[in-house]
């Protein structure tokens, strides 16, 4: 199969603020194959956005990558200079952000901003770049792109701005597209448009996608693999089917239970996760979910759980997966496969 496009190993990112070191990402590893769509799910403060900013080296002061390595096509990114990063950013790895209003420059036309990316990375004339920009706008479904290319961002609606952002991101045919909450600021019907567009483009140009979101519904459709993050760590990783149908981590299970199901006619009461997320200035020594977990044991407070394998490509960081762990009600019944001891490769 295809080689690993991206390999993240033991990534630790912190923000050194005046109140102390905020350990936003505390040792994350995952990898991504070319053309694959990976979803990173988590709540605010889980470290999902910081992970993606680290990949792009876009961390702002006082944030720094403390430890770990990020290999893109086998090449170390963490040690790259600013100049080298500029060649990668927008060209090999592109990113779309949550808020299309603040991520577009209001004083340049949409066309200028698409052409900027093309001219930076490709050996083309201005005229050719403009042609390409029109083609990109057409690709993302903006009507009459020849006219719209000279519009300013304020003349576009929210959905169209996000389309324009996607056009910029894809203009240099990146190998990896990172989408950080691309539809959170949009209305449902516009969100549906953008998701359809991303699905269509994924098939058309075969870019690998990392989709970062808090909305489980968004990843269910678009991604094939999901990482669930909490408190700066990966809690569980698996295929969409693993995560949605056979979750092995109490946090994943809690997330799934706390959203109402539409097709559920009987109004079951929602099962919330009690408490609040941990403070990452003083992160807990054990499992970050310990304080909110209904199954928490003594060991959970003392020692961070390693990953236990729950099948091929499915891993979960929970002590309940340990072979000596007590069988608890509610948790054990979701076991459908044999639990093997040890971590995934």
């Amino acid at each position: 199969m295809a080689d690993k496009l991206l390999e993240v190993k033991n990534l630790k990112t912190s923000f050194f603020t005046h109140v102390g070191e905020v350990q936003a990402v505390r040792g994350v590893d995952f990898d991504l194959k070319a053309g694959e769509a990976l979803g990173i799910v988590g709540e605010s403060g889980s470290g999902k956005s910081v992970t993606s900013l680290s990949l792009m080296q876009l961390l702002q002061y006082p944030g720094t990558i403390k430890e770990g390595s990020i290999l893109f096509e086998g090449d170390e990114i963490v040690t790259k200079s600013v100049k080298e990063m500029r060649r990668i950013r927008g060209n090999d790895i592109a990113m779309i952000f949550q808020d299309p209003m603040t991520s577009l420059n209001p004083v340049y036309t949409i066309g200028d901003q698409i052409m900027e990316a093309i001219l930076e990375h490709q050996d083309v004339t201005k005229h050719q770049a403009r042609e390409k920009a029109i083609k990109m706008l057409e690709l993302v479904g903006i009507p009459s792109p020849e006219k719209r290319i000279d519009n300013y961002p304020h003349e576009f609606s929210g959905g169209m701005r996000q389309r324009a952002m996607i056009a910029i991101a894809l203009s240099c045919e990146p190998k990896l597209l990172i989408a950080d909450e691309p539809t959170t600021a949009l209305d449902v019907t516009i969100q549906a448009q953008i998701l359809e567009l991303m699905k269509e483009l994924k098939e058309k140009i075969n870019t690998a996608i990392i989709l970062i979101t808090h909305d489980l519904g968004v990843v269910a459709d678009l991604c094939s693999r999901i990482i669930v993050m909490y408190g700066g760590l990966i809690m569980e990783e698996g295929t969409v089917e693993d995560i949605f149908y056979e979750p092995k981590h109490p946090y994943t299970m809690g997330l799934l239970k706390s959203v109402p199901k539409l097709n559920n006619d009987k109004r079951e009461r929602l099962v919330p996760i009690d408490g609040t997320p941990p403070d990452l200035i003083k992160p807990p020594t054990g499992c970050p979910f310990y304080a909110r977990c209904q199954y928490s044991m003594k060991i959970c407070q003392e020692q961070q759980p390693p990953f236990f394998s729950a099948g091929k490509g499915h891993r979960s960081a929970c002590w309940l997966m340990h072979e000596d762990a007590p069988k608890v009600e509610g948790y054990s019944k979701t076991f459908k496969r044999e639990v093997s001891h040890g971590t995934t490769d």
């Binding site: 019907t189 998701l195 269910a220 199901k261 539409l262």
Partner: peptide, 24 residues
């Protein structure tokens, strides 16, 4: 509006057909 809701269930999401409204 109903068909636009992303459903947190991969099987349902893959098989359901979304009515995508044009424009804004």
């Amino acid at each position: 509006l109903l068909s636009a809701i992303p459903i947190p269930d991969p099987d349902v999401a893959k098989n359901s057909h979304r009515i995508v409204l044009e424009g804004d």
